[in-house]
Amino acid sequence: MSEPIISIRGLRVVYHALRGVVKAVDNVSLDVMKGELIGVVGESGSGKTTLAMAILRLLPPKVARIVGGHILFDGLDLATAREEELRKVRWSRISYVPQAALNALNPTLKIIDHFMETAKSHGIRDRKWVVERASELLETLRLEPERVLNSYPHELSGGMKQRVLIALSMLLNPEVIILDEPTTALDVLTQYFILNLLRAIKEKYNMTMMFITHDIAVIAGIGDRVAVFYAGKVMEIGDVYTIFKRPAHPYTRALIKSIPTLTGNIEEMKPIPGTPPDLINPPPGCRFHPRCPYAMEKCKRVEPPMVELKPGHLAACWLLA
């Protein structure tokens, strides 16, 4: 579990919106280690989905552009790879579970057809194999394969659909799965249930998972490492224990304090004051400084570098540099 399977270096992605250029991912470097479950956490609009779409090169073609950096995967730079090379990687080697999962299936096709067409598009024509593999996956996810495969999407509940998408993402036994908020549409119990399943599946099939969420508490239970995103930048990276027990960055600390707990006192829960910055005109210096209680003069002018506090624990903050 020590070598990286995906290495992101200095990645920059922009959207050309009507109001101007949105710097959605700005100079992000991140290693995804083989066999780990890494959580990517950040508020809404911090660029998490954009990062995922950049890795798969599925950004909306006319609006979005990768303007810099590299995404290294098995000797290939996905940031610049040609479409044929990407097609060999997509889904069979890196797949994903979309964020808006509830409407991700074709309403006019049965679930089984979604599995069939996906396999067929990657050169697998053996129907029996597909049915067996799909059934096995669905069973692992505690769904009744018979019933689910013969259903139309509208006949399934939100939680069932979500699990179907997870099964679809694993159909071709990919090395990496990117899960973009796969549980946000679910109630707490189903969410808990699916998270534990994901953890178990990852162990069983020895996959690498990148788990995107805005809810840092979700990562606490299942993740190996966490990358904290803020306004298109990585603020802190570390293993789950360190991030929760000894968060170094003021933003991470604020994020953890904002988690409501069932047993905790409501007064102890502190939402982060202020709002995330506009990514068309992000604040100079540290992007978090307008909301940071410790902000210094320097923070407003110069961007803090990423410093390694101890092996594997990095943060970008002038308090630590």
Binding site: W91, S95, N103, L105, N106
Partner: peptide, 16 residues
């Protein structure tokens, strides 16, 4: 619709 983007992501041929 999301299901169209998701179909592209799954690598379905554009004809389909």
């Amino acid at each position: 619709e999301d299901f169209v983007h998701y179909a592209v992501a799954r690598g379905l041929p554009s004809r389909r």
